[in-house]
Computed example of a mutant assay.
Amino acid sequence: MSATPEQVWSVLADGWLYPLFVVGASRMREVDDTWPAVGSRLHHSVGTWPLLIDDTTEVLEVEEERRIVLRARGWPAGEARVEILLRPTADSTVVTIVENATAGPGALVPKPVQDVQLHLRNTETLRRLAFVAEGRAR
């Protein structure tokens, strides 16, 4: 991304922005005051109106401007562990998402099938995150 790790992190650290870049997130209902501290949560909805499901995403681990690990919930589909890594380069940031279904029906899907679906979803998520981070950097 044509943005510094600090600029990308500023987007990740603003929980109200998640529906702008996370594929499937429809709206934000509440963001804990301590976001993105360990244990804090985003209270979001997934799906398309009028078929919305209210759930949460919780911070499991955080290294400011470097890494965040989330437990993303979207029941009845299940839960996933999502790790977002930021690696600085000379004039940009390489952002990587590693996601694995950990509970619910999604965890029963064979890993090679999960990988294809998640790759497509997370490629679009990264594209959207770049639009937001780069747009704010200008």
Rank of each mutant, 00 (worst) to 15 (best):
A13T: 01
V22K: 09
E63I: 10
V22W: 11
L70I: 05
D91W: 10
R71N: 06
L51A: 09
N100Q: 13
T34E: 00
L86V: 05
R73T: 02
V95R: 06
S45N: 14
A133P: 05
A77R: 14
Y18I: 08
E63M: 13
A130V: 08
G78D: 06
G47M: 15
L120F: 00
R87P: 11
E134V: 05
L20Q: 15
E61D: 02
H43C: 01
P50H: 10
N122F: 09
P36E: 02
V59Y: 00
A103F: 09
E134L: 06
V94P: 08
I68Y: 08
M1Y: 04
K111G: 01
W75F: 15
V132S: 13
P5K: 06
V95W: 01
W35Q: 02
A13C: 12
A37T: 12
D55F: 11
V31H: 03
G135H: 14
S2P: 12
E79V: 13
F131A: 12
A101P: 11
V11E: 02
R71L: 06
F131R: 10
D32L: 05
V109R: 14
E58Q: 04
L120Y: 03
R121C: 03
V109I: 15
P36T: 09
R67P: 06
V22H: 12
W35V: 08
W9Q: 09
L120H: 12
V62S: 01
Q114L: 00
I53C: 06
D14L: 15
A3G: 10
V38M: 00
V109Q: 06
G24H: 03
V98N: 05
W75C: 01
V132G: 07
R41D: 00
G74Q: 09
D55A: 07
A103R: 07
Q7C: 12
G135V: 09
G106E: 06
